[in-house]
Amino acid sequence: MAFFEMAKTALRTVLSRPATIRYPFEPAKKTLLTRGHVTIDESKCISCGTCQRKCPAQAILLNKEEKTWQIDRLRCVVCNSCIDTCPVKCLFMDTQYTAPVVSRGVDIITITYVKPVKAADKGEAQG
């Protein structure tokens, strides 16, 4: 049986600096690999739709006609699946968490990728 087993730890904690971060005055912890939110390089996306098919939460919707890529941030579970499967590596993981929101909604991004035209019919395309 021991008494005051905790005293040493308690004393040291009183005298040392707090273990917590004073968020939001100090930024929250982040690491290089932290999964925050998915971003897209809209100039590289070839609209193949792999990310949409491989999304376990069905958060991504790709519209081929209107050339938009949309993501429901509240559905997204930030699992990295789309980034791993993207054939042209146009998706990235940002380490910053998304800001809090008060209503549901989707982020719509217009894809600006233009299919490179072959050298032979280049003149035709320009004309």
Partner: peptide, 15 residues
């Protein structure tokens, strides 16, 4: 948890 996050990217859901 910090080590988990540094090595896998997730504190709780390592994935």
């Amino acid at each position: 948890l910090d080590v988990m996050e540094q090595t896998t990217g997730g504190r709780v859901i390592q994935g």
